[in-house]
Design a protein around this nucleic acid. Structure first.
Length: 229
DNA sequence: AACGGTAGCAACCGCCAAGTT
DNA sequence: CAACTTGGCGGTTGCTACCGT
């Protein structure tokens, strides 16, 4: 972050940002006045294109900076303050399942942003988890993050690919299954079951919809392997 | 009081995929 | 179909506040 006192005028390094190609845009910490301008712009115009926001708000900021400031700080639906135990527990479990998929993890925590979750993980939780694993004999159960993940359902996709849409519609469902599976794993550990017992039991529990889940994954993987082969 | 180390967090950067022209 | 634009993501940086010495 380059602040150069309080007059941090810089060219944006992002060449894909049309708003910053030929004009100097402000960088660094946001002032109260800028926050007021951005907030009133969003309240007035609603969900306009972010590329138009700097102009509409009268801000000398790039679109990305405006979007980030709104999503991570000004958005009234955000929940500020410390993470409670339940939230931390959920983050740890989801991270074990998903890896650094911060936006997915944050999606399970109402009012929390991906940036919040990531910062909290990097500054606190990762150390806690490492310490806990060391204490437990260094056994870490890590899951390979599941990819690819659909980002959003678009009108075009819905028109052109019923397959993708079906899988995306099940997006919440498969994540629920993963969490459920992990809960069963932890329960099994507590009850002294072996890895195999837990895995088998977890798979059974994982469930009545298992076929649908695996079909969903294969629908992603098959076209991918077609391309690669 | 001064200093150094560090935790927490806001913000930026580079990249990617989807959408538009 | 290519070029360009846009939205979104994860990784990283650097400022600030706090704490111990």
């Amino acid at each position: 972050m380059i602040t150069l006192g309080m007059i941090p005028l810089e060219m944006s390094g992002n060449t894909s940002d049309s708003a910053s190609k030929s004009i100097l845009v402000r960088k660094g910490a946001w002032t109260q006045a800028e926050d007021v301008l951005l907030r009133s712009c969003i309240e007035k115009h609603g969900s306009v294109k972010w590329s138009r926001v700097p102009q509409l708000a009268g801000l000398n900021r790039c679109r990305k900076s405006c979007r980030l400031r709104w999503l991570n700080y000004l958005n009234p639906t955000l929940r500020r303050g410390t993470f409670d135990e339940d939230e931390e527990d959920l983050i740890i479990r989801l991270h074990k399942l998903l890896g650094n998929r911060w936006s997915l993890i944050a999606g399970r925590l109402p009012g929390r942003t991906a940036n919040d979750v990531k910062n909290h993980w990097n500054s606190r939780l990762s150390k806690e988890v490492i310490a806990r694993d060391k204490k437990n004999g260094g056994q870490v159960r890590l899951a390979t993050p599941i990819r690819p993940q659909p980002r959003a359902i678009t009108a075009r996709k819905q028109k052109t690919s019923s397959v993708i849409t079906e899988v995306e519609d099940d997006h919440t469902s498969w994540l629920d299954h993963l969490i459920l599976d992990d809960e069963k794993y932890n329960k099994g550990k507590m009850e002294g079951q072996t890895e195999a017992e837990i895995s088998f039991g977890g798979l059974k529990g994982f469930n009545d919809d298992q076929g649908l889940f695996l079909e969903g994954i294969s629908r992603w993987e098959n076209p991918l392997s077609d391309i690669l082969n």
